[in-house]
């Protein structure tokens, strides 16, 4: 059977508590993880690219800040730069925008998720992790509406449960596909994408 892989990208939205959560997640995914990962971590406008460099040093994956019109590649992780929204073009390229903050956030999780849902449709995995606001719940609902898969960190496991709770509430009718503890997420992602094995715990 040579069916095309079902998924083409993973998008992650995360806010407070995110640095630890991302370093745990990206540190555990295998170097041959089959999909590009696009991340919005809420961050101050003058933060610089320290987070990307930190995560890159901790992960077998290649972590960097997204550049405008970059083509996302498997095994690569792209962070929204401070003070810019990260979007996905219909042809799958990454785009940046300096539009106004959305719900006080730039980068905004909703902006990434909504554009990624339009670009990838059912071939998208959306994940909401720890955070103390409700950014991303509209976006995750959009991903579900376009046929994608929704994963939310178990609020009991999240350093800040509001963002996971809001996402679960927003999806009430269509319901989240997986509610998982952070530690179980790498294995779930690998299973979903049918390639590579997890190393470490």
């Amino acid at each position: 059977m040579t069916a095309l892989p079902k998924f083409r990208a993973v998008v992650i939205g995360v806010s407070s508590g995110g640095v630890q959560a991302l370093s745990a997640l990206l540190g555990t995914l295998p170097a041959d993880f089959a999909l590009p990962i696009l991340i919005v971590q809420h961050i101050g406008p003058d933060a610089g690219d320290g987070l990307a460099r930190l995560l890159d040093s901790q992960s077998p994956l290649h972590v960097k800040e997204a550049d405008e019109m970059e083509q996302p590649a498997p095994g690569h992780v792209y962070l929204a730069p401070p003070n810019y929204h990260l979007l996905v073009e219909p042809d799958g390229h990454l785009a940046l925008s300096a539009d106004l903050p959305v719900s006080y956030a730039r980068p905004s999780v909703d902006v990434l998720f909504e554009s990624a849902a339009e670009a990838f449709g059912p071939a998208l995995i959306g994940i909401i992790l720890t955070g103390a606001n409700h950014d991303g719940s509209r976006g995750l609902a959009h991903i579900k509406a376009r046929g994608g898969l929704a994963i939310v960190q178990d609020p009991a496991d999240a350093e800040a449960p509001q963002m996971p709770l809001a996402a679960i509430a927003a999806l009430a009718a269509s319901s989240v596909d997986h509610v998982v503890a952070l530690a179980a997420l790498p294995a779930l992602l690998v299973t979903l994408t049918h390639r590579g094995t997890c190393h470490g715990q």
């Binding site: 073009e89 785009a95 925008s97 909504e114 554009s115 339009e118």
Partner: peptide, 9 residues
Amino acid sequence: YAEASIRRR
């Protein structure tokens, strides 16, 4: 123009 932003707006 880059489409994602235009469509959003």
